[in-house]
Amino acid sequence: MTRHNPLDNRLLCGALGVAGLFCVMEVAGRTGLIDPLVFPLASTVLGRAAALVTDGEFLSDVASTLGAWALGLLFTVALAVPAGFLLGSLPRVESALRPILEFLRPIPSIALIPLALAVFSDRFDMKVLLIVYAATWPVLINTMYGLKDVDPLAKETLRSFGFGKSAVLWRVSLPSTAPFIATGVRLASAIALIVGISAELLGGGAQGIGSYVLESGGNADAVEYIIAAAIWAGVIGMVTNGLFVLAERRIFRWHTARTEVV
């Protein structure tokens, strides 16, 4: 039997790391190394974060952000995946649209917020639309990339057995592109959160965790609220990303080369 070294345990070390940071921040705040007015005590922040769970206003803000995020991602998939298949399987259309796409893609989606604010009166619609615009790119590009990666031999085999175009698409291209699409959606989900919260910050007046931060900015202990809300946003980001990773691993266990395209 080999001796078990406690420092080999990932969970234990990770917990120690988190606890260590907490203690360092707490001690630095209490001894005055960091002014608690500039950066509140770690225990205060954690207490505030815990209190937010029962804060109805905060919860409805979280629900609004997540609602826009989910709806935006849903529309994105419904739009970008068929578009990716269309562009991927029609090379002439793809080469015609490529210059347009190459120009649209580098435009930072945040820059569209001032324009969207003027066009949309409903802040929720605006948020969803901006999310769709920003999240479409990784899904579209991953779909097209995955389609290029489809085994030509498998397609030829099906064709020589007399299967039609749609059968080839449905039985070969879609399953072998699916892991790439999933990666694209996972990347898009992080971008969707960034864009959604930015729209809330800049738009104001609407619901969402971005607006929550904006509204608590006037308080004397604003930083405490800001960090507590950021902690929950981090938890949301981590959980959603983790769920996507988990789903990818379960659904695409057969897919050996899970390649990432950014």
């Binding site: 420092l7 345990n9 990932r10 070390c13 990770g14 917990a15 120690l16 790391g17 988190v18 260590g20 940071l21 500039v38 950066f39 992080a190 959160l193 960034i194 919260i197 930015s198 910050l201 965790i209 971005g210 931060v213 904006l214 900015g217 604003a222 930083v223 800001i226 960090i227 809300a229 950021a230 902690i231 946003a233 981090g234 938890v235 949301i236 980001g237 981590m238 990303n241």
Partner: peptide, 25 residues
């Protein structure tokens, strides 16, 4: 092993959430 959970958490925070914090700082 010590730092990875902190890194994973910090990178999961959508940056716009921290804008107000940096402005206060």
């Amino acid at each position: 092993r010590f730092i990875d959970p902190l890194v994973q958490f910090a990178r999961a925070i959508p940056p716009p959430m921290l804008l107000a914090f940096f402005m206060a700082l």
